[in-house]
Simulated assay, not measured.
Amino acid sequence: MSTPDLWDGLRNGPLPGDDSAYVLPAGEAPRIDSLNLLFSVLARKRDTAGAFSLLEMAGARGAMAPAHSHGDEAEAFYLLEGRMDVHVAELSRSAAPGDFVYIPKATRHAFEITSASAKFLCLIVPGGFEDYFLELGALTDDTFPREPHEFAIAAADLRADVAARHSWRREPDYVRRAGSPGRPFRSPESPRTPDGSAGRRPTLHVPQEPTEETAHDGRGIDVE
């Protein structure tokens, strides 16, 4: 069955299917159960004249995407809840709510959820890669992602035809040096929250070139 046929059930659903203005009420996004993750589809290629797709992705601890790249799209992640290890090109970090990750087109990347659960936005430019997730999964009424004991074998490793059709390419895995957790995205500063109490605002850590003093401080991470 082709991907357009799989979307046919949504022709009269909450998404317009053309480049029309729309408002998607909370909880009404179509959902896909795929690759041990729950995808809430906020915008598809066909809803934005191909400009972009926007998904909300949720998963339990251990849900992950192995090192891979796809040649046609750039991606961006914005973490809403939980924690996840993110690897992009030669960067490896532990991301927290509020952190933003940009993945240029054809760039090796991977992620793994490390908290009990996590939720993040995934922006895809140009749109269309949502079809990959649907081809490897199915539309669902579930509102919660799979628990770890329900995890299935990653379908991406079993459907080379789907991967090739969407320019999804498996890449060499990232290798973490034992005992080296990597520098987190979170900033050490603790700004005041609106109510005046001390808090921590997640900010993107901009990596600096290692110096002689920091090159062997145990915080680094090896990638191959």
Rank of each mutant, 00 (worst) to 15 (best):
G17Q: 02
D19L: 13
A21N: 07
Y22Q: 14
Y22C: 08
Y22V: 12
P25L: 05
P25H: 03
P25N: 07
A26C: 06
A26H: 11
A26E: 13
A26F: 02
G27D: 11
P30V: 04
R31Y: 04
R31K: 05
R31S: 07
I32E: 06
I32M: 06
D33C: 10
D33R: 14
S34T: 07
S34G: 06
S34I: 04
N36K: 12
L37E: 10
L38T: 09
L38K: 00
F39N: 02
S40D: 08
V41M: 03
L42F: 01
L42T: 02
A43I: 11
A43K: 00
R44N: 00
K45Q: 15
K45E: 12
K45L: 07
R46I: 02
T48L: 07
G50F: 06
F52P: 03
L54D: 11
L55R: 09
M57V: 15
G59K: 00
G59M: 07
G59C: 01
A60G: 10
R61Y: 00
R61C: 02
G62W: 09
A63N: 05
A63V: 03
P66L: 14
A67D: 10
A67V: 06
A67N: 12
S69T: 12
D72M: 13
D72A: 14
D72V: 15
D72G: 10
D72E: 10
A74K: 06
A76L: 13
F77A: 04
F77I: 12
L80Y: 00
G82L: 05
G82C: 08
G82Y: 03
G82M: 13
G82N: 01
R83C: 09
R83Y: 13
R83A: 13
M84I: 12
D85F: 05
D85E: 15
L91F: 15
S94G: 11
A95E: 00
A96Y: 12
D99W: 11
F100W: 03
Y102P: 07
I103E: 04
A106Q: 10
T107P: 05
R108C: 15
R108H: 12
R108N: 10
H109Q: 09
A110Y: 08
A110P: 09
E112S: 07
I113G: 04
S115H: 02
A116C: 01
A116H: 12
S117I: 03
A118K: 07
K119D: 02
K119I: 02
F120H: 10
P126S: 05
G127V: 02
G127E: 03
G128S: 01
G128W: 08
G128L: 06
G128Q: 10
G128H: 13
F129Q: 02
F129K: 02
